[in-house]
């Protein structure tokens, strides 16, 4: 099987996901609006009494962007299990197509959606008074780090979905994502937490991305030197989950 076929198969599978969007514009819109709602809610309702340096909106927006990347895992898992449940994957697997093209299609679509989500959220953040001060290159770098985190979480999501198998089981795995998301510095600075909690939060890969992104945006809560961690953490997750996911998909019939 040539490389041209591989590219064509991956593109066909990506088009399939885009065709799903065209069929369900409302669902796509809801997917974009939900994180915006969270942002607005935290910004205006919870925001008041936080002990974080500087303006809370400037602190919150990078945190929410990071959190959205992590929670994207849920959508990925749901989509993968729904596919497995429907039997269409059986047809894909009985065809002479490239191994893993199904997963690549999923990944490409989810990345596109996340990129769109980031743009919408930064726009709403801007309207709420958030400002990035780091210049265009740093801004692009921050978005890159966020998407890298999403990409790593995406493959973790694919793997977990393939392991869980059924949509019912996905829900139980999803619950585990919540503490991971909230035990981070997305909403509050670790300095304001009890010692042990603060330590856990500092070691959360998500906190690395949030801190680095804050630094690149020139927002409060950023610290120099975190960009490396924000690159290495997702790469480590990818190195673990990407092969696991592809292997698991290949061995579905075992």
């Amino acid at each position: 099987m040539s490389a041209a076929y591989a590219v064509s198969d991956c593109w066909t599978m990506t088009r399939r996901e885009l065709a799903h969007w065209a069929r369900q514009p409302v669902q796509v819109a809801v997917g974009l609006v939900f994180p915006v709602m969270m942002l607005v809610m935290f910004g205006y309702l919870v925001g008041g009494g936080r002990t974080v340096p500087g303006d809370y909106v400037d602190f919150l927006v990078p945190g929410m962007l990071t959190l959205t990347m992590v929670f994207g895992l849920e959508g990925t898992m749901t989509a993968v299990t729904r596919d497995l449940d429907k039997g269409v994957v059986d047809r894909f697997r009985s065809m002479p197509m490239t191994d893993g093209a199904v997963l690549v299609g999923r990944a490409a679509a989810d990345m596109l959606q996340s990129a769109a989500g980031l743009l919408v959220m930064t726009g709403v953040g801007y309207a709420m008074g958030w400002r990035a001060h780091g210049g265009p290159a740093a801004f692009a770098g921050a978005l890159g780090l966020l998407l890298l985190l999403r990409f790593a979480m995406l493959w973790a999501g694919i793997f977990l979905a393939l392991v869980a198998g059924r949509p019912e089981l996905v829900q139980s795995v999803q619950i585990l994502v919540w503490p991971f998301g909230f035990l981070s510095n997305a909403f509050a600075s670790p300095d304001s937490m009890p010692g042990w909690l603060g330590a856990a939060v500092e070691w959360n890969p998500m906190s690395a991305t949030a801190t680095a992104v804050r630094e690149l945006f020139g927002n409060p809560g950023g610290e120099p030197g975190w960009v490396t961690a924000a690159v290495l953490w997702p790469l480590a997750l990818l190195a673990l989950f990407f092969p696991l996911a592809v292997r698991r998909f290949r061995r579905l019939g075992a």
Binding site: R15, R16, A19, R23, D90, S94
Partner: peptide, 29 residues
């Protein structure tokens, strides 16, 4: 070299018949 009609539908039911067949046709290159 094979074709498969499984016991349960192996289709992308969110898509039309034409979309399904075109997609599978592309995957058959």
């Amino acid at each position: 070299r094979i074709g498969l009609l499984g016991q349960h539908a192996a289709l992308d039911e969110a898509l039309s018949g034409r979309q399904n067949l075109e997609m599978f046709g592309r995957l058959f290159h």
